[in-house]
């Protein structure tokens, strides 16, 4: 996935002189996950900008650039460090279009690695998608594979509102797949059906997609797996259609359970699909605790937890 994002950023920089990348250690060093490797050498330090250590400044400055004809692509080194910039995101980026009656807009793509799986402990593992998704005006994307990463990013380049592009750091190097060289887009706001099935629906995204897929294949469950790809605005109609077919549903994410995306999707389905449901809507998620270091493997959803929920759902017929 690192390579797919790197080549897409390269493409963006080559096509449009108003595209700039900015962030900590992204230039000379090539980024702590090497996502921006080689780009400063190619496009110069005015377009691939090594900034001082100030997330608030990186985001605020990007918003100012975006308001003035540029297409900034800021990087926050770890999503865990975004919070000093939260004010800029929530009160500026997200609200500029609305508060100006549509006169201003912020075409910025904020990239940031998120989630666990690398033994990063409390501050290098968080999944904060719900904070962003809860902010009207922000678009939240999380690819689960290199193909989608490129395609979603290509769409993001033409999008006119601020995007939080959450990159599951666990998948940076763990998933390999051939990505076409030619231009293609994956639409924003459209989920993908990773696997078709009839017995139950599993809604997931990001790093959990391969975990869910592996568990389902291995245990030969006739499940339909939906990868949201866009977390906000999520693809309600694809979820609804699937749940009407299967009558059973669970949501899987790494982020803590309470008020996570699973809560939103449950409410959405409770409102619209209650008549089709044969059993409860289940959630397999991280617990409502901070993210631990040594016990990471116990924290994250895994095959055992997923299959336990599958077993429970199958009891309802």
């Amino acid at each position: 996935m690192v390579q797919a994002i790197n080549s897409t950023l390269d493409y963006a920089l080559s096509k449009n002189n108003d595209v700039v990348l900015l962030g900590e250690d992204i230039g000379r060093d090539g980024g702590v996950f090497r996502v921006t490797e080689g780009l400063q050498a190619k496009y110069g330090s005015d377009r691939v900008i090594d900034t001082p250590l100030v997330e608030l400044g990186i985001v605020g400055m990007s918003i100012g650039m975006a308001l003035n004809g540029m297409k900034p692509i800021p990087e926050i080194q770890f999503q865990d460090f975004i919070f000093t910039a939260f004010d800029q995101l929530v009160n500026q980026a997200a609200k500029l279009r609305y508060r100006s009656g549509g006169q201003f807009n912020v075409p910025m793509i904020l990239r940031t690695p998120y989630g666990g799986g690398i033994k990063g402990g409390l501050y290098h593992s968080q999944s904060g998608e719900a904070y962003f998704a809860h902010t009207a005006g922000l678009t939240v994307i999380s690819p689960s594979n290199p193909y989608d990463a490129k395609g979603l990013f290509m769409s993001a380049l033409e999008y006119e509102d601020p995007i939080i592009f959450l990159e599951p750091k666990k998948l940076y190097r763990s998933v390999k797949m051939d990505v076409p060289d030619e231009e293609y887009k994956v639409p924003i706001g459209k989920a993908s059906i990773v696997r078709e099935g009839n017995d139950l629906t599993i809604v997931t995204y990001g790093s959990m997609v391969p975990v869910v897929s592996a568990a389902i294949e291995k245990n030969k469950v006739d499940a339909e797996i939906i990868d949201l790809r866009t977390i906000m605005p999520y693809d309600g109609s694809t979820i609804l259609q699937s749940v009407k077919k299967t009558g059973r549903v669970m949501i899987v994410h790494e982020a803590p359970r309470t008020l996570g995306m699973g809560a939103e999707i449950s409410a959405f389905l409770a409102e619209r699909a209650i008549d089709y449901l044969m059993g409860p809507i289940l959630r397999v998620t991280g617990p409502d605790t901070p993210f631990p270091y040594r016990l990471e493997d116990y924290y994250l959803p895994n095959e055992r937890k997923i299959m336990k929920a599958v077993g429970k759902l199958k009891e309802f017929r």
């Binding site: 460090f81 990063g120 402990g121 409390l122 501050y123 290098h124 901070p290 270091y293 040594r294 016990l295």
Partner: peptide, 29 residues
Amino acid sequence: GNSEDSAKGRQMPSHYNAKDHNFMSVQSP
């Protein structure tokens, strides 16, 4: 991050706790 760690192995390495020596718990940000 072992079971004798006063913070119960919750933090990644280099994030020490030594309250009894008047140190604050270390954070990453």
